[in-house]
Design a protein around this nucleic acid. Structure first.
Lengths: 226, 226
DNA sequence: CCCTGTGAAATAATTCACAGCA
DNA sequence: TGCTGTGAATTATTTCACAGGG
């Protein structure tokens, strides 16, 4: 009589950000033949505290068994459902350079419910090449392709200068969920959801931590001169 | 008489996570010839609130001018310094498939103070090939390479099955900062800093938002049946 | 004035600690 | 008994709102 708790209640952003990680670890456990895990075990495998894991999962509903733990298969399915991965998400990737190719063959894309249905690039030398069973087509065919068989998510993997114009084409075709790997900030009309992945952000944060460690360890800062 | 405020005080993680984005936007403004910005303008360009921007920057020190704003160049330099990007970070990339190649040529790596000094892959067909002015070498040469000219950060861009053994080699060579793009959770000794980038996480979060929007808009969940 | 930098207030996220069920 | 699920306490982050310098 009521919809999925995962969809009714507000799930905190911080929790949503961790769900993919839980799902990934559960998938690994399932591959290893593990049938059941306690919050303590799963939390350790993921690298969070068990209380946080339980609190996070409580936002999706009650899928554990008191005194026992969680059934791996069931929990993985419920997290998938909460994330929307049980729906069909036809994905198009634009830009078939090294990054686009890496994404097209990235195991996490294919195994997690995303269906790569179209690959676009305007380089004539690449047109017709097949990757992951999909032929590369020129971007001019986007609208026709979208009309025949709608695309839910567009992934931009072009160099930065092309990103905005590609984005405009995607939006123009009616695609409102866009994942942008190009190092460019895109402007889009309201109602379009753009997320950007910057491959160097984590490297910069790693440098920050390395610097702190170096300072704490040996040569303490530039000056503790009196 | 005291070290850099950026390095003395504790900078909140949430702030550190946003600094690369501020820096990127400032770089773009600098390219466009903008000399000065107010917190209001910069915050709008980045997509955060001006109060948050000012609070974040206050953790690094006082680099603004009251009544005027921030000098773009100066602020970019101070953020770079806080992140440790004014230090030299020699980076090695292991795994020269599509992802490794994409990373080697990723503009964000090179322009943000990271120096790619070594590329490794064990595929004999790739040995000797040059990318971004660096020749691909077999991983067996890691220790020798590290001894001659130390590597600060190792980037793993191999398929998942190879990731743990590559990681062990990096750690064995004495590299304690590792960025892992392989879809695998790595175990490392204490003192090693590993950060993982999962290319599908953001796609999953995008699907989550798309699902919510779909539910809110039209067909409201599976049941609001009385 | 205008805009920064920052205490104080409000909100969000995490952790604790235990009630309650299998 | 063992472990989940969750209120309550704690801690972190964000936002407000304004003092104060240029």
């Amino acid at each position: 009589m009521s919809a999925d708790p995962a969809l009714r209640r507000e799930i905190p952003d911080a929790t949503v950000a961790r769900l993919p990680e839980y799902l990934r670890t559960l998938s690994r456990l399932a591959e290893d033949g593990v049938l059941s895990v306690s919050s303590e075990e799963l939390a350790a495998a993921v690298g969070v505290r068990s209380a946080q894991l339980r609190k996070d999962l409580s936002h999706l509903g009650s899928y554990g068994v008191r005194g026992v733990g969680y059934e791996v298969e069931t929990l993985a399915l419920e997290i998938s459902r909460a994330l929307g991965l049980t729906e069909d998400w036809p994905v198009a990737i634009v830009g078939m350079g090294n990054l686009g190719r890496a994404l097209a063959s990235y195991s996490g894309f294919v195994t997690k419910g995303f269906r790569i249905v179209a690959l676009f690039d305007d380089d004539p030398a690449l047109i017709g090449e097949r990757l992951a069973d999909v032929a590369i087509r020129p971007l001019a065919e986007l609208d026709a392709r979208h009309a025949v068989d709608p695309i839910s998510i567009g992934v931009i993997a072009t160099p930065a200068p092309a990103a905005q114009s590609v984005c405009d084409r995607l939006v123009g075709a009616g695609i409102s969920s866009i994942l942008n790997f190009a190092p460019a900030v895109l402007s889009v009309p309201a109602g379009t959801d753009v997320r950007r992945v910057d491959l160097s952000t984590e490297l910069q944060i790693l440098a920050f931590h390395a610097q702190r460690k170096a300072l704490a360890a040996g040569h303490l800062g530039s000056a503790v001169v009196s």
